[in-house]
């Protein structure tokens, strides 16, 4: 299990990284934290000719609040998300999710930009981006552009990123007053990829949801912003209504089959998560009706 030979270039600036990517195109791969790319190379699942290492680009690292926007540099590591007071204040969902990303050794190296660019449908952060309404900031040959998270993820390991593009940052709206979040995933062991997971962001108004965004992951080839959430916003929620939303969720999801679960099991677990999420956010234990929701 040794990687095939490859050339290595350490980018000195974002502009330099873009130049390297422009030259090598699809033959190049960007190395960020290396937690997905390096194992794949060692297994010879991928064999890029050139590695463009962006690890030294300090300008891509860090978390900042700019007005009503939280900006997270692409090279910000999962461990940094867990430690950041800005995350706690402005996007606590991300902190809750980051705690579920693999193990400490991986969180110490893996980056948010790497995770989003990798677009593993079972990973936590892409679903958070959907729930939080994030914009993905990309630099490419045509300059800078922003892609809404809902459009960014296009399939398994597939995004809107072209081979010449570099993901540089994530922008999130700062959490509003009344915001609440819920994160839970079902994984066989701590740190494993989830069988099904839910990253939810809500705005509460009294005993109702003014807004509810449900970012499901590991339920298909990309993270899903569940439309069923719409049934639960702005109304008083009863077990019957929740069950109705849950049925809508079942219809909406088109989960895959793998060694951990059949599509039916994934649908069931997604329903369980919906009930747990709603019961928890509204502090209504009577709504925690499991898969019967």
């Amino acid at each position: 299990m040794k990687a095939a030979a490859f050339a290595y270039a350490r980018a000195t600036s974002v502009a330099n990284a873009l130049e390297l990517l422009a030259v090598h195109g699809e033959k190049a791969r960007v190395l960020s934290g290396g937690q997905s790319l390096i194992p794949a190379m060692n297994l010879r699942l991928v064999a890029p000719d050139v590695i463009v290492d962006i690890g030294e680009l300090a300008e891509l690292r860090g978390i900042a609040v700019k007005g009503e926007t939280l900006v997270i540099g692409a090279l910000t590591r999962h461990a940094d998300l867990l430690k950041s007071s800005d995350i706690v204040k402005c996007a606590p969902l991300l902190g809750a999710a980051a705690a579920h990303v693999a193990h400490p050794a991986i969180r110490n190296r893996g980056t948010i930009g790497g995770s989003l660019a990798q677009a593993d449908p079972a990973s936590e952060l892409p679903a958070c981006m959907l729930a939080l309404g994030a914009s993905i900031v990309v630099h490419g040959p045509g300059g800078e552009r922003r892609i809404a998270a809902e459009d960014f993820f296009t399939g398994i390991y597939e995004t809107q990123l072209a081979p010449q593009d570099l993901l540089v940052a994530i922008e999130l709206p700062v959490a509003r007053t009344g915001s609440a979040h819920f994160f839970q995933e079902f994984a066989r062991r701590h740190g494993d990829y989830a069988i099904v997971g839910l990253a939810a962001q809500a705005v509460l108004q009294g005993d109702r949801f003014a807004d509810l965004r449900l970012g499901y992951f590991a339920v298909g080839d990309k993270p899903v912003l569940a439309k069923a959430a719409g049934k639960l916003a702005g109304v008083a929620i009863t077990p019957a209504l929740l069950a109705e939303a849950s049925d809508a969720l079942s219809h909406e999801l088109d989960p895959h089959e793998d060694q951990q679960a059949t599509p039916a099991m994934r649908r069931h677990l997604a329903r369980v998560l919906l009930a747990r999420c709603v019961a928890s956010l509204l502090n209504r234990p009577d709504l925690n009706i499991g898969g019967r929701a």
């Binding site: 079902f186 066989r188 069988i195 951990q260 679960a261 059949t262 039916a264 099991m265 069931h268 898969g291």
Partner: peptide, 13 residues
């Protein structure tokens, strides 16, 4: 005893 096995036995899925 995987979740799949247990949920199936319970008739949940």
């Amino acid at each position: 005893l995987t979740p799949q096995v247990i949920l199936t036995a319970l008739g949940r899925i």
